[in-house]
Amino acid sequence: MKNARNNELADRRSAATDAKASLLTAYRAAKAAAEPSQLARQAERISLVEAREARRVERERLKLEERARLEALAAQKQAAIEAEAVAEIEARKSAENARISRVIEDEAARKAERDRRYANRKARRA
């Protein structure tokens, strides 16, 4: 007879204490039985975290390398643009100098021809 009608307060208290003690021993037994699997799960979680961290570090390294590569490429493009601009300026200067020298030479040739004609006219008159 599990539940007798004439339970006294002391009987009920001792039954409750026994029930709590049996629950506690069952919990401790279950915890002890689950300890190896818990350690294995914890080790697996730690390895997953380490792998995730390694992948994050690798992604950061790749981002830095890509950023450095892009910066170097941009610097090369900028240097090429600046060199092209300098070459264009030099070409314009040399073309302008050549044009000026041709104008001066043409002017000198025209003056020489004028002087020659003037000398011929003076020679014919004399």
Rank of each mutant, 00 (worst) to 15 (best):
R121N: 13
D11W: 09
K111Y: 15
L39Y: 08
R55T: 09
M1G: 07
L62C: 12
A15T: 09
D18M: 04
K93G: 01
E50G: 04
P36V: 02
R92H: 05
D115E: 10
D115T: 10
E50N: 09
A32I: 10
K122G: 01
L39M: 12
A95W: 08
E90G: 00
D11N: 13
I104V: 10
E90C: 01
S37I: 11
R99L: 01
E82H: 12
R69N: 04
A75L: 06
A4S: 14
R61S: 11
A34C: 07
R67H: 13
E113H: 11
L23M: 05
E105Y: 09
I89A: 12
A34E: 06
R121C: 11
A123E: 01
L73V: 11
T17P: 00
R45D: 14
L24V: 06
Q38A: 03
A126N: 11
P36F: 00
D115C: 11
R121A: 05
Y27R: 12
A75F: 15
A79Y: 08
L62I: 13
A43R: 14
S22F: 01
T17N: 01
R124G: 03
A10H: 08
A33F: 00
R114M: 03
A54C: 07
A80S: 14
A16Q: 02
Y27E: 03
R116F: 15
A54N: 13
I46E: 11
R56N: 07
A26L: 08
N120R: 06
T17E: 08
E105N: 13
A126Y: 06
R114I: 07
E82L: 04
R12M: 03
A74P: 13
R121S: 04
A30F: 02
A10C: 10
I81M: 10
E8S: 03
A16M: 01
Q38M: 12
N7R: 15
A80W: 11
R59F: 04
A10L: 10
L48P: 00
E8H: 03
E105F: 11
E58Q: 03
S22N: 03
L62P: 08
A21V: 02
K77M: 09
S14K: 12
R59K: 05
A79L: 05
L70C: 09
S14D: 07
I46W: 13
E96Q: 08
I100S: 15
R99Y: 00
R124E: 15
K122R: 07
R55H: 07
